[in-house]
Design a protein around this nucleic acid. Structure first.
Length: 633
RNA sequence: CGGGAUGUAGCGCAGCUUGGUAGCGCACUUCGUUCGGGACGAAGGGGCCGCAGGUUCGAAUCCUGUCAUCCCGACCA
């Protein structure tokens, strides 16, 4: 390809819309253009990169025995209603674009394809003899992200490789899951990425085991915690660890664990309480009052007890609530602090009366009375003027969950459930409570590891480029995907699913491979492997030598670009660096002697060589590094 | 959705406080000189000043509304 024909439009200034390096460079170097928020045109250069990544993904997936397919993006609501995900994905903060066709039928634009593939599996898979199968596709996905960000990093339309495997047993699923783990590591290695595999939360997709593949980069949206011995790595959402030991409360229990009252005006936070009254935060039980909203209208007050120095991990909380109430009440739509504002909103929009004045916010204790937080009237009567038919109703009991760090305290300080007062020397028995213990704390860098308390966790930021799940039978059950086993029994299929964000991966590669001059693609996914630049477009000798170098590179099967523009050498060099072509062959002053210069973009290393030798060097270096495997230059 | 910011030529920005009919750099076109790290000179082209309404003799500028984009939080490949 000739640069003059490439529609190469590069910019000198950083675009105002971009924040992180990779996003700025994608725009500046002419790889993408924004069409709307979170929606981008992939320009010819980027499309070549995406094709190369896709080719690697295909080779590795095909090599593992997976079958490529292409599934519809337009999906009937009915399919999603059967899996129980329609409401969660469309209502409220749902991320599925959905629409009605001319007959008034509801359709969704696929954010993922579990439903479609599972219903197909139910159709096609009948016998254990057909198992296992692994189907994948590389396709555009649509997600109405709450906040699209950072260019291709979090787009509303993006390219994803998703694979779904079906099995006759959990054991077989585990084998494929393990195989995909290996396939993924190879794919990322071939793409030239430094990736960490971490234990992950399975989120809205569901299922049991799941692992994310994180490109380590400062711009990453996730926090990864890893042990120094390399044996443990997890997403913070999921991570487990040992909290620092608590400082024992002097004097222990008081008044048989009922606690001694302490006047604490203006001490509504742990910091104020600790600073004002000489307590260590680990001696305090912090109580959070939250309200969970479920799909069926249930509004559940939740009282969380945490040790004062600990932070709530919301993902763990959502999982705990879903595990306890999801089956009976549907998707958990939201969980938020029960503030005065929320109480007002509840009264106005849902006809639910919670008197904020009755809530001693800032002075809550784990034994907070249910009083105002539950529905004591039986079925709630809709108040006049509120949203009709919302069906919102308050639960009849309060759910109390206690993190293990708080449950382990034998004598602690906590709020007295009346403004301006705490209690000192409280015990769980003294409160008449048996803690319902759940792991709810957010792990931090510096925490000790569970597998070896002498190891500590450290934190790195990461960009999630892949995620593999053992889904189990959740979707197969919902969509009645069964097969006949060897013994003639009808059995539900076991499922796994495996995703790679292809377009995100391209940008993550830039985040890891760039410098002040521009991009610096790994050879395996570079849009072109080499660029031939003649220093002067006026010098016929240089031009013809450049042409012949370009032809010979192409004949040798190299993806070569020829900068044939009548620009000054500096402009062409700057552009070559900016768009990040790994190898540059400069035809300049030495042209008269048949000499050219070979430049390696990554380290700027250059050498003058006769053309024949230069081509040889280039061709062997490129063919050696093309696979992305091994220790190429 | 809540909090913050910004919309002026393809890109980056000034002008707005104090209303008087739009400017700078880059990019683009033509000519000349230059030619190994984003050249120089000359001459050009390009703007419903996000949109709608209002105030005013007069609005990029003041007021109201609205839309869009970006950043911080909840979502995820």
């Amino acid at each position: 390809m000739r640069v003059s024909r490439l529609l190469l439009v590069t910019l000198r200034d950083d675009p105002a819309e971009a924040e992180i390096a990779s996003h700025k460079l994608l725009i500046r170097a002419g790889y993408i253009r924004r069409v709307a928020s979170g929606i981008y045109a992939y320009l010819p250069l980027l499309w070549r990169v995406l094709q190369k990544i896709s080719a690697i993904v295909r080779e590795e997936m095909d090599g593992s025995g997976a079958l490529e397919t292409l599934l519809p993006q337009l999906q009937p609501a009915e399919l999603w209603q059967r899996s129980g995900r329609w409401a969660g994905y469309t209502a409220g903060e749902g991320i599925m674009f959905h629409l009605c066709d001319r007959q008034g039928r509801e359709l969704g634009l696929g954010p993922t394809h579990e439903e479609v593939i599972t219903s197909l599996a139910a159709d096609l898979l009948r016998s254990y003899r057909q198992l296992p199968v692994n189907l994948y596709q590389i396709q555009t996905k649509f997600r109405d992200e709450i906040r699209p960000r950072f260019g291709l990093m979090r787009g509303r339309e993006f390219i994803m490789k998703d694979a779904y495997s079906f099995h006759g047993s959990e054991e077989c699923l585990r084998q494929t899951y393990a195989a995909m783990d290996g396939v993924y590591r190879r794919i990322f290695q071939r793409c030239g990425l430094r990736v960490v595999a971490v234990e992950a939360d399975s989120g809205a997709i569901g299922g049991s085991a799941s692992q994310e593949f994180m490109v380590t980069a400062e711009a990453g949206e996730d926090l990864i915690l890893t042990s120094s011995d390399g044996l443990y790595a997890a997403n913070q959402e999921r991570a487990v660890s040992l909290a620092p030991p608590a400082v024992p409360l002097p004097g222990g229990m008081r008044l048989s664990g009922a606690g001694e009252p302490l006047a604490t005006p203006d001490a509504t936070t742990i910091e104020q309480l600790a600073a004002g009254h000489g307590f260590d935060p680990t001696q305090v039980v912090k109580v959070l009052l939250l309200l969970a909203r479920f799909e069926d209208g249930l509004r559940q007050a939740v009282v969380i007890s945490l040790r004062g120095d600990q932070q709530l991990n919301e993902v763990k909380l959502v999982n705990a609530l879903t595990a306890r109430l999801g089956a009976a009440h549907g998707t958990l739509l939201s969980i938020e602090p029960l503030s005065t504002d929320l109480a007002r909103e509840l009264r106005q929009k849902e006809g639910i009366e919670i008197d904020p004045a009755a809530l001693p916010l800032g002075y809550l204790g784990p034994d907070l009375e249910e009083g105002a937080l539950v529905d004591r009237r039986g079925l709630a009567e809709p108040a006049q003027g509120m949203a009709r038919g919302s069906g919102a109703r308050l639960a009849t009991t309060v759910l109390r969950l206690t993190d293990a760090t708080a449950a382990a305290l034998t004598a602690f300080v906590c709020g007295a459930n009346r403004p301006g007062h705490h209690r000192v020397g409280v015990s769980w028995e003294g409160l008449g409570l048996t803690p319902d213990v759940v792991d709810l704390r957010a792990c931090q860098a510096g925490d000790r590891c569970l597998h070896d308390p002498s190891q500590t966790l450290s934190a790195v930021r990461g960009i999630e480029v892949g995620h593999i799940f053992q889904l189990g039978r959740k979707y197969a059950e919902a969509l009645e995907a069964r097969y006949t086993s060897e013994s003639g029994q009808e059995e539900t299929l076991w499922m796994g699913c495996y995703g790679i964000g292809v377009s995100r991966l391209a940008q993550a590669a830039i985040e890891q491979n760039h410098d002040n001059a521009g991009l610096n693609w790994p050879v395996a996914i570079a849009p072109f492997e080499a660029i031939v630049v003649s220093a002067s477009a006026q010098d016929p000798q240089q031009v013809s030598l450049a042409e012949s170098a370009y032809d010979r590179l192409r004949q040798a099967g190299i993806d070569a670009l020829l900068d044939d523009r009548d620009e000054r050498a500096g402009v062409k060099f700057k552009d070559a660096d900016l768009i990040g072509i790994p190898w540059r062959l400069v035809v300049g002053r030495g042209a008269a002697r048949g000499e050219v210069e070979v430049v390696f973009r990554a380290d700027g290393h250059r050498r003058d060589l006769p053309l024949d030798q230069a081509l040889e060097v280039l061709i062997s270096a490129i063919t050696a590094s093309r696979s992305g495997l091994g220790d190429s230059a």
